[in-house]
């Protein structure tokens, strides 16, 4: 057999070879000031919640250290609450509980949302209609009502139970967004090529479709986390929070119940409110600055 000469491709130009170092450099250059500001804020909040108690804690969170609604002083910088407990210590523990609830609820909601959305988008057809039908039903039910009913039904709750309740009611938006993405990625040709390599459907979804949505899923997680924290605060304020823990919402619940506003004990309700605002603000800022990195269209605006 005579062969036809096939032109060998010349080695590609050096520009195509990007060193790992320069890739890191161009990545860090894409991170904006917004990212550094929000990341620093999140780090400070984490430090405050998880390591703070070791430095500034005044005993256990439920330990009574003074009288009712003692004003801030040199020893107790945020004063005491309605039981004479240290507000500052409670704030650190409460922030921790709120963060834990947010992360667990976010993980649960994101996982359910991704599984539902990925499956619906990948298969399309009847499966898609069924799963999206369920999703739409869950969306239309007012979630706060479900949350209240679930909280009442469960009775005594740990912070993890609390997180589960929030997680299983807040996945639908993630499911819908992931569905749209996965139905477009599944039409890329590499998915068909992987099928021609004998890959099973589950492995196609996992290895060929899912990687394209990782950045997206991560951002959905951050949003779910934030809204999980806020939902916990809302529930706890209504008195439906975890039974044996302190959270930011529970602090607000107590201060409402013991009329701190009327008595002018601002140190009981302002700190948890400010902390909630700070957490939500820094996480939203982080999410939008990461969006810029993942989504090149938003860069340089």
């Amino acid at each position: 057999m005579s062969g036809i000469p096939v032109t060998m491709d010349s080695p590609p130009p050096p520009a195509a070879k990007q060193s790992a170092q320069s890739r890191v450099r161009s990545f860090t250059r894409m991170l904006s000031t917004r990212f550094y500001v929000s990341a620093t804020m999140v780090a400070m909040i984490l430090f405050f919640a998880f390591l703070g108690p070791f430095f500034w804690g005044v005993g256990e969170p439920k330990q009574i250290v003074g009288g009712l609604y003692e004003a801030p002083s040199r020893e107790l910088i945020l004063g005491t609450d309605n039981f004479g407990r240290d507000v500052f210590t409670q704030l650190m523990h409460g922030t921790r509980s709120s963060l834990v609830i947010g992360v667990v609820a976010g993980l649960i909601a994101t996982t359910i949302g991704v599984v539902m959305g990925l499956t619906a988008g990948y298969f399309g057809g009847v499966i898609d209609e069924m799963l999206m039908g369920i999703t739409n039903v869950v969306i239309t039910i007012p979630s706060i009502v479900v949350l209240i009913l679930l909280s009442i039904a469960v009775g005594t709750k740990s912070i993890v139970t609390m997180a589960i309740i929030i997680g299983v009611t807040s996945w639908p938006w993630t499911a819908r967004a992931v569905r749209a993405q996965s139905s477009s990625v599944r039409n890329r040709e590499h998915v068909d090529l992987a099928r021609l390599s004998g890959a099973s459907t589950v492995s196609l979804m996992f290895w060929e479709v899912l990687p394209y949505m990782l950045s997206y899923i991560f951002m959905a997680f951050v949003l779910q986390l934030t809204s999980g924290i806020l939902q916990e605060a809302a529930l706890s304020m209504l008195g439906l929070g975890p039974s044996n823990a302190v959270s930011l919402g529970i602090m607000l619940h107590w201060s409402l119940l013991w009329e701190s506003v009327r008595t002018g004990a601002w140190w009981a309700f302002i700190p948890p409110t400010v902390m909630l605002t700070l957490i939500a603000f820094s996480l939203f800022l982080l999410q939008s600055s990461l969006d810029e990195v993942f989504n090149p269209r938003l860069r340089g605006r």
Binding site: R188, E189, H190, D192, L193, A194, L196, S197, G198, W207, E208, P211, Y212
Partner: peptide
């Protein structure tokens, strides 16, 4: 069957999983 019959598609960029 796929050991005997294989395919190449239109879009070289879409044929690659970028990861």
């Amino acid at each position: 069957y796929w050991r005997d019959v294989q395919g190449v598609f239109q879009n070289p960029a879409g044929s690659f999983n970028q990861f």
